[in-house]
Computed example of a mutant assay.
Amino acid sequence: MRLTLSNFVNYTSFMKFHYSILCILITFISYSQSVFDQDQVIEKTMSQRWELDDEDKNGTFKLTFYKPIFVLPARWSSNPNELPQSESLENSFTEVQNYDQVEAKFQLSLKTKLIQSFLFGHGDIWLGFTQLANWQVYNDPVSRPFRELNYEPELIVNFPMKVNLFGIDLRMAGLAFNHQSNGRDLPRSRSWNRIMFHAAFEKDNFQLYLKPWIRIESSDKDDNPAISEYIGRMEANAIYNKNKHSIYVIGKNSLDFDKNRGSLEINYLYSVKSNLRLHFQAFTGYGETLIDYNHKQTTLGIGISFIDW
């Protein structure tokens, strides 16, 4: 191929872009290794992650990890959502978007305790924040846009518990006010608010989180009126850790027996060094992101993970 000025500029831009991605990954890895032990896989109990027992209390306003933190440079979709729709016509696309089947996906998630041992010394209040990004990083014809960014702040009231139920321990329960949105204008805008209840169980290397919720109906215009019929009304997270291997499964369901919908996400992680892990992710169903809340697809992703549940 003949080298032209245009080709040279494109090649230079390409190399600068991938150098930036590499720098981001190195920063993540360095930070992860500086926080955690460098030779052993650090598996934290539910009490250590949520400071349930007295010996695990760490006070307030200290940032800790919340949901899994991962980077998937390659995520393939069986059915890219090129014409996002909503029951609200204002929030429906009229032109097909030129999206690639392969994009990048990453998630950041942190929490901090605002109040410790309130209500007669039995409860904690946490502030959590999660950001999920889907990036058309390989789609040069449309300037590599972020296809979707989801922001999820939540205020969590949590109560430590020690109740044995059929051989498994109920370790905590509570509720949260959860807001999720993509911060976009029309027709991309999607958002909803929920009161989420939770109960968490633990037995040896196994953890189970059950999260039913009630949607708070919007008094103004609703970006996605039927979102509960697709993403669902309940979530279950099952986590199993064994040596260098971790599996966590996230299932969501509409709890509607006539039109049963939801999603299933399976994650497998293998520890390379300490909390740096290879991460394989498979998703099928509705609502992988807010813009896809009523769009069904199957996706496969591969990358690295730094923190899991």
Rank of each mutant, 00 (worst) to 15 (best):
S219E: 08
Q136K: 06
H179K: 14
L264G: 01
R2W: 07
N178H: 09
L155M: 04
A133H: 11
D39M: 00
Q40I: 09
N134G: 07
D258L: 05
N98M: 10
F166I: 07
M234C: 02
H198R: 05
L149Q: 07
N237I: 12
G128S: 13
S181I: 12
V163N: 14
N224W: 06
D256Q: 10
Q281T: 07
F177V: 02
F65M: 00
T284D: 11
M15R: 13
Q101K: 15
I304H: 05
E288C: 06
D140A: 12
Y209T: 11
D100W: 12
G183H: 13
N164G: 11
A133M: 14
W76P: 06
T284K: 11
F206I: 15
T298R: 10
G174W: 10
A226E: 14
T45V: 12
K259Y: 15
S20W: 13
S34D: 06
I24W: 10
E95D: 01
V35W: 05
I42R: 05
V35S: 09
N260C: 10
L300A: 03
N81W: 04
Q131E: 13
F129E: 00
H179N: 14
N241L: 00
S78R: 01
N237Y: 13
F166P: 04
T64N: 13
S191P: 09
F197P: 03
F120N: 15
H18I: 06
N10C: 09
L22C: 05
D100S: 12
I115M: 09
I227D: 00
K113A: 03
G121T: 09
F257H: 11
L52K: 01
R261T: 09
Q33P: 09
N91I: 00
E43T: 08
F306I: 00
L108N: 11
A226I: 06
E55F: 04
G183V: 04
I291Y: 12
I214K: 15
D169Y: 06
E288I: 01
D220M: 03
F17S: 09
E217Y: 14
T299K: 09
K296H: 12
K16P: 03
E217M: 06
V35K: 14
A236D: 02
Q33H: 12
I42Y: 07
K273L: 10
V9R: 13
K67N: 08
P225H: 00
D56W: 08
